[in-house]
Structures are given as C-alpha cells and as structure tokens.
C-alpha cells in the first residue's frame, strides 16, 4: 500500500469568523465596563460577584488561536517562550472597590476565577451573531463554565441586559428569553443608555 496516497490533513482557519468574534468580544467587554458605570441594574447585578474577581470569556481550544496569524512562521522559541499570547478572549476584572474593568485579551499573569469557554469558533459565532440566544446556547452545550456556576449566572444576566441596551428590539428579542415590557424598562432609559454605552465604549 502506498500510504502517501492518504495524506495527513491540517484543517484550515476561519479567518472572517475569528475577526468577527474577536471584535464582538472586545465590544462586549467594553460595553459591560461602561454599563457597570452608568446603569443601576447592571451595577447591582455585578455587585453579587466577589471583589478581586477575574472573569474570562474565550473560544476553545486556546492554542488554536495565536494572536498573530503568521505565528506559525515565527521561530519555535518565540512561540514556546510565551512571547506571544494565544486565544480569542475577553477578560473582565472586578477590583477591591467593586469597579469593573476590561483587561483586554491576554490572560498572562492573571488568576482566572471564572472561565466561560465556547467549545469552538462556530459556537461563538452563532451566539455573537445572535443566531442562538444565550439560553439556547447553554441548552445546546455550546459553552462550558469553569469555576463557580453561580457567578456565570450573574454574568449571563448582565449580558442579557447589555444586549437589550445595545441591540435594536428586533435582534435583541432573538438573544434574550423575554424582552422587557415598558413597565420593566422604559424606552427612554434604553435609548439613552444605548447612546452613552456606544459612545463611551468606542472612545475610551
């Protein structure tokens, strides 16, 4: 048998989805940081997290996503020494005073308390492009949680509120279980917060 007839296959990359997911994670991180400052409900929810708490949302497997797409062409020691960091991630930190800060995408030197991991890029794509709501994605095992499950519930609730702020009703309805009625959240609050969060997330 000529075994060269059956070559080894290195499956490729999904560049567009990588870029999209990375941008969305960045936006979500920034938006939560701003929302925690300007909205009372988000602030109250996040107060349930312990102080000095680091939360990470990422796409698995970490090593499949070197920061630079050309990492493979670099000498091995650069990659091994950890001079590059890996992964499509979003890290949020709650400090001692209870302030929420978006810490970028590099987990190096940080102790992660809660890790929310999308099983693959396709799962992250479906959630972040609102084809699957957070609850549906959880039901479909699209992501797993490392750490205390209770805190991930808080995070999911915050995510829901922020999505209601940021997205037009027609899309937000796909992303959350129940879109709030007037009595639960007034359109004025929604609109003002939407403008404020967008401006501050993209400028600071």
């Amino acid at each position: 048998m000529n075994i060269n007839k059956y070559p080894e296959i290195h499956p490729g990359k999904k560049l567009f989805k990588r870029v999209y997911v990375a941008i969305m994670l960045w936006t979500v991180g920034k938006a939560i940081q701003v929302a925690a400052k300007v909205d009372k409900e988000v602030k109250e929810e996040l107060a349930k997290l312990p102080d000095n708490f680091t939360l990470r949302m990422m796409v698995a497997p970490e090593k499949a996503f070197p920061l630079f797409f050309y990492a493979k062409t670099l000498p091995a020691f650069v990659v091994d020494k950890g001079l590059l960091f890996y992964g499509i991630q979003m890290i949020l930190h709650k400090d001692k005073e209870g302030k929420i800060k978006y810490l970028g995408a590099d987990p190096k030197g940080k102790k992660i308390d809660l890790n929310i991991v999308f099983k693959n890029i396709e799962a992250a794509w479906m959630v972040l492009s609102f084809q699957e709501s957070t609850a549906t994605a959880y039901m479909h095992d699209r992501f797993v949680v490392e750490g205390d499950l209770v805190h991930s519930l808080t995070f999911v609730r915050v995510l829901d509120i922020v999505e209601i702020f940021l997205l037009p009703k027609i899309i937000a309805k796909l992303a959350v279980k129940r879109y709030p009625k007037w009595a639960e959240m007034s359109p004025l609050r929604k609109f003002v917060k939407r403008v404020v969060i967008y401006i501050r997330a993209y400028t600071f």
């Binding site: 075994i3 059956y6 070559p7 080894e8 296959i9 290195h10 499956p11 490729g12 990359k13 999904k14 989805k17 990588r18 796409v59 497997p61 090593k63 499949a64 996503f65 693959n120 890029i121 396709e122």
Partner: peptide, 17 residues
Amino acid sequence: FIRAFADSMVIIGAIYD
C-alpha cells in the same frame, strides 16, 4: 467535513477511503 475541524487542534491523520 474537513472544514468542521478548522480552528481546532485536531489534525486528521489520514482519510482512508
């Protein structure tokens, strides 16, 4: 089928057809 393995650490040893 191969596309489904993109962006993972999986290498397909061979496809024996």
